[in-house]
Amino acid sequence: MATEPKIPDLSEVDTPPNLPTGTPMVQFDKVVKRFGDNVVLDHLDFSVEQGERVTLIGPSGSGKTTILRLLMTLERINDGVIYVEGQPLSHMDRGGKLVPANERYLSTVRKKIGMVFQQFNLFPNMKVLENVIEAPVHVLGVPKDEAVERAKKLLDLVGLADRVGQHPTSLSGGQQQRVAIARALAMQPDVLLLDEVTSALDPELVADVLNVLRDIARTTTITMLIVTHEMHFARDVSNRILMFDKGRIVEEGAPDKIFSEPENDRTQTFLRAVLEER
């Protein structure tokens, strides 16, 4: 199709917080995560600046997805502290001491973060539009008319303006994933987590989803943490690549450097394996 590419207007979802200079958007401080005896993250330290797009790569089981799930508070950490916008996320301040966060505290801090899942996880009992307005209306307290207005704009942005009244199950995987992206954006997150968002899709549907994400990356300042096996996409949108192995960062740097001249053996082996597969 030879239509002019639309320039998406994302000003409404792009609501960057006013962080004091020098405060990272996300910071992991000696974070440990174990599942039973299996240490998934081993005293992990790293931080992400506001507006940065960071892609986490590495073999499966290296802890990438766990990082996103910890940030989304879907898992609890075993040791260390996670900060978002300078505030502790995994812990809360009680009388000057950091104690593990309780559910009420989590429910306030996790609003800064949005996530798109590998399996989309749309609510099948709600229509497309209802999926997108559910959280703005019931969590942020946005008046319904306004939420609908905004949801329609977002759905237009992801190319699904004509699907607002349909049930998610009647959409293709790629369409469902684009609805899920619109749903996450509707919450105006400061940090967007993308967890292997194209892994469950048929190959021919991947491009549409990635293009939507490229648009979002290009036109907003939303901080993104990305776990993906799409190396071209990672190269296009990322400022920085973190290479993980066994719960540690073994190499990091700008995409050009990591993809063109990786230094670490593990990175070289991994990239060779991934790129050959294509």
Binding site: M72, S107, L122
Partner: peptide
């Protein structure tokens, strides 16, 4: 009801009561 539904509700910060009423129970009852 798949675990992903609970996780999506958490990711959207839906309160627990709302999660039960709007997401989990309609699917479970169906």
């Amino acid at each position: 009801v798949p675990k992903g539904q609970w996780e999506a509700a958490t990711a959207l910060s839906l309160p627990r009561g709302r999660t039960w009423r709007a997401v989990i129970l309609p699917q479970a009852v169906r």
